[in-house]
Design a protein around this nucleic acid. Structure first.
Lengths: 346, 346
DNA sequence: ATTATTTATTGACACGTTTCAATGAATACG
DNA sequence: CGTATTCATTGAAACGTGTCAATAAATAAT
């Protein structure tokens, strides 16, 4: 139904080659011809067909963005950064939400391969290696999001998760906490495992007694469940570190519901420093990650890889996490010694 | 570089037509041939080229999603719903963030037209009519998000904004508030204008004295600015109604910073009932809109329009908003009569 | 055994572009 | 004036698929 380049050529009484030149190399077309063809293009509301164009050139101007959960503001920021960078370079972005599901991730990769995306920006859920391998074997550009590449076979932009884990526990240790619960993701989550290493490092050095609660999925609902588990422990901890802020929000919500005060009864620190952390019921201490930068930089690297015809140097960029201390963490000396379960009404 | 259907045909010693049949109508291919071709497809890691496929058929399996701001959890939910529905029907989604910028919106539409998307899901920023017209003139399916279509020339899924405005003010009026500030978007925002109509309806009927503060952009930053304006008014209102929750979050943050207590000094109600509303410093009263449903339903309608060869009935679906009363709104009788500006330290 | 019917496969063409060697027209040079 | 040289334009081929009329082979009906 839409008019084609041939229609334009016919009406402007030129060849298709000339119309193509008007679109792609206007400087080599004679001024009068240029004007005439452009007029016809407007009249016919001609928009070149991207399929045909890229079919011929063998290259598209699209990239895929695979993230586990758009509902988490951390990934929202990442997506925004990636989209901005792509837009800047005239790339269109396919949004793929993997739902932390390996199978869905693989299925999305299939879709993206069919669409012949130039590259894929991926925050892998479980087995990063498999997805990257799959994409690589099809000669599609890859950049890892929030996941450091091991073999330097691809670009990656991440945050030093080990360091982040260390910072968080160090902060709690500095506040005098010796019994800490670490609520984290399963072993498949590279990020969580890394943070766990940092956690263990400092915990050992500072003589902290650590209890680990692993979860399959990290969101507010699972956070609420985890909070119940924490309160059911024999020995109640004085602080909780959550692998992300969504989790921490869930934990906080459930604790408050149970009448446990933060930080008077228990200190709580999250991870990501999402947009809503400062506005929480109790302003949430957290570990800041530059989410927007992460997405933006990764997209820039990916596009540079895609466009660079020569040798592209795979870069591994690692940002530093930062502690953002707010009201949800406090020194043990300020804790209530008598635990009043009756003041739920408050 | 990737292998083509022709490569497969050659290696499997069949014609290209047969390979095509294996892909699209396997039931008409002889079992042995089917197996042989499929084996070769696996060996060659053949993935059909979407461009060529759709160039031939003249139809893609992609849709565009244009939203003003992915950072706002309301739109995040909408996006998630839309993506789920698209995924269910094997459609890929182009993510376009218009940044509440009409020019950017138009530019994105150009990109989508080039990509020959089958349809576009759009939450228009200013002039819905222009964008819809542009898309319609190119015979692309359109469904309006959170925006009721006037001429029933297209599908739309929205929420009754007039009703939402009414509900909010009615709630405040029921709590005895007579001096209310309504912080809203500019006249370009259809949604805000509609809510404003509802606001005015009830305000007049209930004898409420209304002050309107219009803003260009609605987010937490502009909310903070607005809060300052409110406090600079000659007569301090007893309640504030914000056109969305992000705005309300900003207002709340600034009020608390200034030592104004919510709801003891001033009641506050938002709109959208985003995920974080209940977890806010003061759990935020809000008007719930079914964001996920909005996105999901709109995508379903759009795809049905795209696939239906015959007569497609354009539907205008209107959801009902719901009041969610939390702690940020309270009866005037519970307000502090003495306004203590000194207790900022608290 | 011949004809009709079903089943499986073929191969050329079309989709809408870009590219590029070839052509023709116009201008510059000796 | 004849020959290079530049400038604009042409038209056909190619990109990788889907479609469809045509063909070949196998089976059923007479």
């Amino acid at each position: 139904m839409p008019s084609s380049l041939r229609d334009v050529a016919r009406k402007a009484k030129v060849s298709t080659g000339t119309v193509s030149n008007v679109l792609n190399r206007p400087e080599i077309v004679a001024p009068e011809t240029l004007a005439r063809v452009r007029k016809v293009i407007d009249e016919l509301k001609f928009v070149p067909n991207g399929f045909a164009r890229h079919l011929r050139s063998g290259q598209s101007r699209t990239i895929g963005l695979i993230i586990p959960d758009i509902t988490n503001p951390f990934y929202t920021e990442v997506a925004r950064g990636a989209e901005d960078a792509a837009n800047k370079h005239d790339y269109a972005v396919f949004l793929c939400i993997s739902d932390t599901d390996g199978a869905k991730e693989t299925s999305y990769i299939g879709v993206l391969l069919e669409q012949r995306v130039r590259g894929v920006l991926i925050a892998p859920t479980d087995d990063a290696h498999k997805s990257v391998e799959l994409l690589r074997s099809h000669h599609v550009g890859v950049a890892l999001l929030d996941h450091k590449s091991v073999g330097s076979q691809e670009c990656s932009v991440s945050v030093d998760h080990v360091r982040g884990g260390e910072i968080a526990i160090q902060h709690l240790a500095d506040l005098g906490h010796k019994e800490i619960v670490w609520i984290t993701g399963s072993e498949d989550y590279r990020q969580c495992v890394d943070r766990g290493i940092g956690v263990a490092n400092i915990a050992e050095r500072a003589g902290v007694e650590l209890t680990i609660i692993p979860l399959k999925i990290l969101n507010t609902s699972t956070g609420e469940e985890a909070a119940k588990k924490v309160m059911a422990l024999e020995k109640r901890p004085t602080a909780i570190f959550c692998a992300n802020d969504m989790l921490a929000f869930g934990v906080m919500r459930e604790l408050l519901r149970m009448g446990i005060k933060v930080p008077q009864d228990i200190s709580l620190i999250g991870y990501d420093d999402i947009y809503f952390a400062p506005t929480a019921a109790v302003p949430l201490s957290s570990i800041f990650q530059p989410a927007y930068q992460l997405g933006f930089t990764a997209a820039e690297l990916l596009i540079s890889e895609c466009e660079d015809t020569g040798e592209h140097q795979h870069k591994q960029i690692v940002f530093d996490p930062e502690l953002v201390a707010r009201s949800s963490t406090a020194h043990v000396s300020t804790m209530r010694t008598v635990r009043v379960m009756e003041d739920i009404s408050a």
